[in-house]
Computed example of a mutant assay.
Amino acid sequence: MTQLTRRTLMAGLVALPLAHPAQAALRPYVLVPEGTSVDFTFNLSGIAQSGTMPIKSANIQINLADLTNSRVDVVLNVAEARTRLPFARNPMLSKDVLDAASYPTIQFVSTRVQLGDGGRISRGAKIIGDLTLRDVTRPITLQADLFRPPGSDTNNLDELSIRLTGALNRHDFGASGYADLVQDTVGLDIQAEIKRAE
């Protein structure tokens, strides 16, 4: 996903709360793979590290007239996770941490969308949902931004971009291995390009 300035982001958001009544129903969107990434960060021996995890499937339903009624269900492929440090990958996937052999997926299912100031999906908007990791389900809150491509028409919502950021405590899900080396908090940065399903 290309870097966007704050001005471009805010300009893209202007049209979203003003959708027409005819757009009230949930509309399915599909991921654009080349514009989508799920990145995570962690601290190893006091040094910030990062990795990626591919999306296995995604069910995205957006209500353009009432964004609070939108729904997201995303499944990640744990076995294909990668880190920038090759030697850290096997310990991460081991039974002591993600246990990819027993729990090959991570799932996020939204339960609520909370709009930001002015009823926009910006300025503090959040997606609240349930994250299931190692067969443990816990609530998680992600900061959310939704915007149109730069230069697109205000009424054309066929293509959108989403950014979700947040963090979790890995011990809440039983992924507690290597506690002497890896800090508790794992950061999340999800960027996705989506397009309306035909």
Rank of each mutant, 00 (worst) to 15 (best):
T2D: 15
M10C: 08
M10A: 08
L13D: 10
A15E: 01
A15D: 11
L16E: 01
A22V: 13
Q23A: 11
A25N: 12
P28F: 02
P28Y: 03
P28T: 04
V30R: 13
V30A: 14
L31F: 01
L31V: 12
L31A: 12
P33T: 07
G35C: 12
T36H: 01
S37K: 13
T41Y: 09
T41V: 10
F42S: 05
N43G: 09
N43C: 04
S45H: 13
G46Y: 03
A48I: 00
G51Y: 05
M53A: 15
P54M: 10
I55Y: 00
K56I: 06
S57K: 14
A58G: 05
D66H: 02
D66P: 12
R71V: 06
R71H: 13
V72Y: 01
V72G: 01
V75S: 14
V75K: 12
R84Q: 14
R84T: 15
R84F: 13
P86H: 05
P86Y: 05
A88W: 11
P91T: 14
M92P: 03
M92F: 11
M92C: 08
S94D: 05
D96I: 04
D96W: 09
V97L: 13
L98H: 06
A100N: 08
Y103Q: 00
P104E: 06
P104V: 03
T105E: 12
T105F: 11
I106F: 02
Q107F: 02
F108R: 06
F108I: 04
S110Q: 03
I121F: 10
G124M: 05
A125S: 08
I127D: 04
I128M: 07
G129C: 09
L133E: 06
R134M: 08
D135Y: 02
T137G: 02
T141F: 00
L142R: 03
Q143D: 15
L146P: 00
G151H: 06
D153I: 06
D153H: 09
N156S: 09
L157T: 15
D158G: 15
R170S: 07
S176D: 15
L181P: 07
V182F: 05
D184V: 00
G187T: 09
G187N: 00
I190H: 03
E193I: 13
I194C: 02
R196W: 06
A197Q: 07
A197I: 05
A197M: 11
